[in-house]
């Protein structure tokens, strides 16, 4: 554990809490892509199967349980409790176009050909692109509420901080994981456009609105 890893995890935790609070307080999931949330649920489910086989630390176990539980809770809020507010007309990204290639790639490039390891690799590849339905939705509607922008900023920051964690681990511990590093860089690059808009607009008190 190092400071980059810890702040990355905390940014991830913060993102999830912001999203849940936004939906709960406004009683609405307007502007939130259910498709991205389905992908995140698939990501956590396939990645954290090792909860039952490998114990790393209490921290590791508790965080995994929180990420799993919160992703299912978010899906419940979007697809059941506040279904009427879900903007499905703008959430039209075809997730099979992300799930299938991520799975094929995991079969081709993985650390080991065991069920858990291939599914872990699949989850890493899928996570790197899981935000695309949400970004697609923002580009389709041309805007995002400020709270949604804060959520996206925290969520994007998490993998960017993990890149610093991987550099630190490479330098200090001579430990690296190429699959996680490359996928994490792809994931962070996808947010760059959004980061730019966040800094130039949302932080100056303006709404995130794309030019028509």
């Amino acid at each position: 554990m190092n400071i980059f890893r810890l702040t990355g995890d905390l940014a991830h935790l913060l993102a999830i809490i912001i999203l849940l609070l936004k939906i709960w307080k406004t009683r609405s999931c307007a502007g939130i892509s259910g498709k991205s949330q389905i992908l995140f649920a698939i990501v956590y489910t396939t990645r954290y199967l090792d909860l039952v086989t490998t114990f790393v630390s209490a921290y590791n176990t508790l965080m995994k349980i929180f990420f799993l539980a919160s992703s299912y809770a978010t899906m419940y809020l979007i697809y059941i409790k506040f279904k009427a507010t879900y903007d499905h007309n703008h959430d039209t990204f075809r997730i099979e176009f992300l799930v299938a290639p991520a799975f094929v790639l995991a079969m081709l490039i993985t650390h080991a050909y065991t069920l858990l390891e291939v599914l872990w690799t699949f989850s890493i590849y899928l996570e790197s692109v899981a935000i695309l339905p949400q970004l697609f939705m923002v580009s389709k509607t041309g805007e995002a509420e400020s709270i949604t922008s804060h959520y996206l900023f925290a969520l994007g920051s998490y993998r960017a901080l993990y890149i610093l964690n991987w550099i630190y681990r490479y330098v200090m511990e001579n430990n690296y994981d190429l699959i996680a590093i490359v996928a994490g860089i792809v994931q962070t690059v996808l947010y760059c456009d959004f980061f730019y808009l966040y800094v130039t607009k949302v932080l100056k008190g303006k709404k995130l609105q794309l030019p028509a």
Partner: peptide, 10 residues
């Protein structure tokens, strides 16, 4: 080439 995933990171 690839170093093993240590399952520590989330």
């Amino acid at each position: 080439l690839l170093q093993e995933n240590d399952h520590d990171e989330l």
